[in-house]
Design a protein around this nucleic acid. Sequence first.
RNA 1: UCCCCGAUAGCUCAGCGGUAGAGCGAGCGGCUGUUAACCGCUAGGUCGUAGGUUCGAAUCCUACUCGGGGAGCCA
Length: 461
Amino acid sequence: MQRSKIKDIFSRSQAGGEVLVQGWVKTRRSSKSVTFIQITDGSTLQDLQVVVDESNPSHEQAASLTTGCSVSVAGVLVDSPGQGQKFEVQATSLEVLGGSDPETYPLQKKRHSPEFLREIAHLRPRTNTFGAMARIRNSMAYAIHSFFQDRGFQFIQTPIITASDAEGAGSMFRVTTLDLNDLPKNGNAVNDEEDFFGKPAFLTVSGQLEAEIFAMALSDVYTFGPTFRAENSNTSRHLAEFWMVEPEIAFCQLDGLAELAEDFLKHICGHVLEHCQTDMEFFNKWHNDTTLATLEGIANSRFERITYTEAVKLLESSGEKFEFPVSWGTDLQSEHERYLTEKKIQKPVIVTDYPKDIKAFYMRMNDDGETVGAMDVLVPRIGEIIGGSQREERRDVLEARMTESGISHDDYSWYLDLRSYGTVPHSGFGLGFERTVQFVTGVSNIRDVVPFPRTPKSAEF
RNA sequence: UCCCCGAUAGCUCAGCGGUAGAGCGAGCGGCUGUUAACCGCUAGGUCGUAGGUUCGAAUCCUACUCGGGGAGCCA
């Protein structure tokens, strides 16, 4: 008989017929005459109840099952007389595939703290929370690809190892094959020529600059892959290794980019609401009872658009007491972003046109000579979820900004070339995948929305 | 990296100068359909690590390690 996934069993319109189900025991409840086993196979949050009667030759074995055992059960799918489930399986045969010593198995049939589960990251996918998280993460990754594919974007694979070391997005991890206990020296300095690539190499902090290369040939492109930041950031919103989505669009200006960012977030939220209903209801019930309403709000509301200058005025006239004072020319603090998106406007806000001195060299200079065509999308709870800009396409202006920022024209001659040969207005943004999963699920710590979190002083598994 | 808080049984926590406690989990027994079942009994701890104060330290002090909340950097 062919194995049925539990998700498919529950999507049947009626009971009846033989089924073969295989999975892991969540809990078991036994009385003298009957044993109930809840099993999960990860296809859905819902457990399947298997009933083993006293008359069944496997009853003794069934009654000794413990949490974590793997089983293969054949039986008849029947309507469940009990509360709590539509169908159940009346077992005809039961085979234990793998035991699970209850004295040492760390998962119990009760709630565990996220901190404890992180220590057993090889077993936490078996929990309700982490299983639901993995399914939603999967569904969101699918939604990201389908959004861009439907719009004719090309998926570009940018390098993970890079020799560019000044992309302006934070400290980088060095990649080397040199013997750290016996470094080749050139005088007092390390001789990088002896390293694998003949020069220093690093893990990428962003695929943006390389994506721009392809946007200047294929028009609309995106990257979706791992990025690395060696910042000593210890917060619930930062990882040293995380995934980022970076579209880059030729012939597109800042307002078009804002439209795309809004459509993109709405598509992801809509997709999750449509395809992950059971898992989302679980998060809404156990983790954050506002997350479903927030997602529906996003899917159905128009994002607010304000300039940085307007945001500063709103904050100054708010009457709110902030720890950090607001003044034109300094970056918005977390508390300012939260005030705007949670209190003042109460939905996602796209803030544009920031002062040039607090933004990266590649962002396009506005006509006022003071601000650049930058764009941040702020959402409740998380703050900045998307950061992007129109790129500076004028070679002379870009060169001046690079000089100002102390960036080598020689190292980035290829980037400048794009402005010499058929330059066009273009724009792009970056979206932190894990922050988006955090936002969607309402899970408070970013370490719990990624299978194996990498943070300062922690790289287990 | 900075500020605040924490670390005691497998898990979640109480105890806060005088010989270590609970709930859950686990083990054993019971229970004719249960819903993270229920009832009874049992076992389980060098109180994060290293120093110090004291007649006596889980409890007070110092340092370190790890974790949480917030901040900075950012996605």
